[in-house]
Design a protein around this nucleic acid. Structure first.
Lengths: 338, 338
DNA sequence: TTGTAAGCGTTATCAA
DNA sequence: TTGATAACGCTTACAA
């Protein structure tokens, strides 16, 4: 088994360097008021003894942990299977790597929320980032009572959103971009399959859709709400087709629903993009798995993760930060529009 | 912003309950030698003050952290994109949820290895689990010098493997199962596309393949090594076909290579499973994305994660544990064999 | 069953 | 520029 290599303490380093604890502490923490001689001696002692400061002791004395939490109120399968999370967390890791902070990840489905909350309240992290598709879990709000928190995306509850820090994608702009793509392709009978009305992305993308059409002097040729699932997209498409009026373009609020919709179009004997142009949202893996490949609105999730770290660190440094940070989506053109 | 809710200390709880610090500590830690009256008083005080023990103080005093690390020497994209990791980590989380331990995740590509190692050496976790496809990074070995470590899969280096704790899938058995499936289908001219010779799963699956054929009194009809990628599988299949001898069955060491192989078979005008039966390995998502759907050997990765936790906790509890734990794969039959 | 008191390894305050 | 010394909040012998 592994011998519990008892690490050297600051005391031992001090003895080896012939100085006091305090001086060693100053060196370790980069204080300027240390003589070159002392600095040298201490550094040598540290190297020789392979000294690593004990984090617990440090935390206890300084009342700061140098750790931040990533809270994900989703079950592991969901979390790991979703490219969006991968990307956001990638950005978070990337930005955090250059700092002394370490990341504690909490995959907290409801039942475990208690353990998570307790941990965060116990003064174990300096701040937290919350990433989820449905941040309506009550315990999530409690976290903000204990430490500074930054959300990925605008929190669902308006009252929470209005006092929270968050980094959000401009979904209204995204809705506009996707719709404009259809308009630019010469489509005039454009419908949408929207996201749930109780989710900010669903609402905002629809707003963008309507705005783009209005700017172009067009009327929506249909609007059905889906649930962001493939089946939901298929059902919505059927409803749209049953509506009667011929449609020549559909803006779908996410790629998964777009895939469902395309299947239905195909069943109905309609060709994409020949008869109907389709635009999705997310630029997820499914966008390239369908035939034809899907034109879709990409969210800069990696950048979103990076910015979340920036905001949180700003908060922790007491420098303050913008309460709301918005990143812009962009259009990814493939073959489903023209 | 967030008011740093200064949490109650054990001292305050003691005062509120009219007992000493020690008694509160005993209650918190579930000691039996506490009178019912004291127990009651303390519990009430804890509830009233919403007391949460300070982890740093606890760690410092008890010299145990109640935290374990999950070290993943992969970049975030790779980690999050791979269903295998999702499953293993799911199992780890699931098992850990019932314990007081929290999980610290380290996605450590090479350059960050130093930060990770320092953290682990600093006495910040009681133990570590290491999950990777290529555990040959040198810093990984250093970790075992500081804390008990459990690997997912047999470490690549034989000398490391021989002294490490690990939970591995029985890849030899897996190779046998996949090959037997072909034999049972009446195939007699069976080849294999193996994994790299420097990776334990590659080697072991090939051993199983050969053993199964030998038991059936058959000779391998070909063996080409691939690199676990789709292109590699395609190239290997081409080589196999160029070999001349008619093949009626292929055991492929993972699903990705199997997909590449199937594409080549199709190009060559050979039907699956009509002309050639194909068996993959992993039961990954691609297994159901190909046509026909792939019969494949499933690894119980979730269970592997659970067992890793069990082994590590055993080690931490000083109860000891089996150095090597093996989980059995199973055959998932779909449409690519017959 | 309970309390006292001595650490655990740092940081931070103050003098010197 | 340095070094005592007092926290930080908790666990854990050891006594009572």
């Amino acid at each position: 088994m592994t011998p519990a290599t008892t690490a050297a303490t600051i005391e031992e380093v001090a003895a080896a360097a012939g100085v006091s604890r305090s001086t060693v502490s100053r060196v370790v923490n980069g204080s300027t008021s240390v003589s070159p001689a002392a600095l040298e001696a201490v550094n040598q002692a540290i190297a020789k003894l392979k000294y690593v400061p004990n984090r617990a002791a440090r935390t206890l004395a300084s009342r700061t942990t140098n750790a931040v939490a990533l809270v994900v109120p989703e079950d592991p399968t969901r979390f790991f299977g979703d490219p969006y999370f991968a990307s956001v967390v990638g950005g978070i890791y990337s930005r955090l790597a250059a700092t002394p902070y370490v990341l504690n990840v909490f995959l907290a489905s409801d039942d475990q929320g208690d353990k998570t909350t307790t941990y965060l309240r116990g003064g174990n992290v300096d701040g937290a980032m919350i990433v989820s598709h449905h941040a309506r879990d009550s315990y999530v709000e409690q976290i903000a009572d204990s430490v500074p928190v930054v959300f990925a995306g605008r929190p669902t509850q308006p009252d929470v959103a209005s006092r929270s820090y968050y980094v959000d994608v401009d979904n209204v702009l995204g809705g506009r971009l996707g719709t404009q793509e259809l308009i630019d392709a010469g489509r005039t009978r454009i419908a949408t399959i929207a996201g749930p009305a109780d989710m900010p992305p669903g609402v905002d993308r629809l707003i963008g859709f309507n705005a783009a059409l209005a700017d172009a002097g067009l009327e929506p040729s249909g609007c059905v709400v889906g649930d962001f699932s493939e089946q939901g997209g298929a059902a919505a498409m059927r409803e749209l087709l049953a509506g009667g009026g011929a449609i020549d373009g559909v803006f779908v609020a996410n790629d998964l629903m777009a895939r469902g919709a395309m299947a239905v179009l195909s069943e109905a004997g309609l060709r994409v993009p020949g008869d109907v142009s389709v635009v999705g949202f997310d630029d997820s893996v499914v966008a390239t798995q369908v035939t034809p490949q899907l034109s879709t609105v990409r969210q800069p999730s990696f950048q979103q993760g990076e910015l979340m770290v920036d905001v949180l660190l700003g908060l922790l440094a007491g420098e303050g930060a913008d309460r709301v940070t918005i990143v812009d989506p962009e259009m990814v053109t493939r073959d489903s529009v023209r």
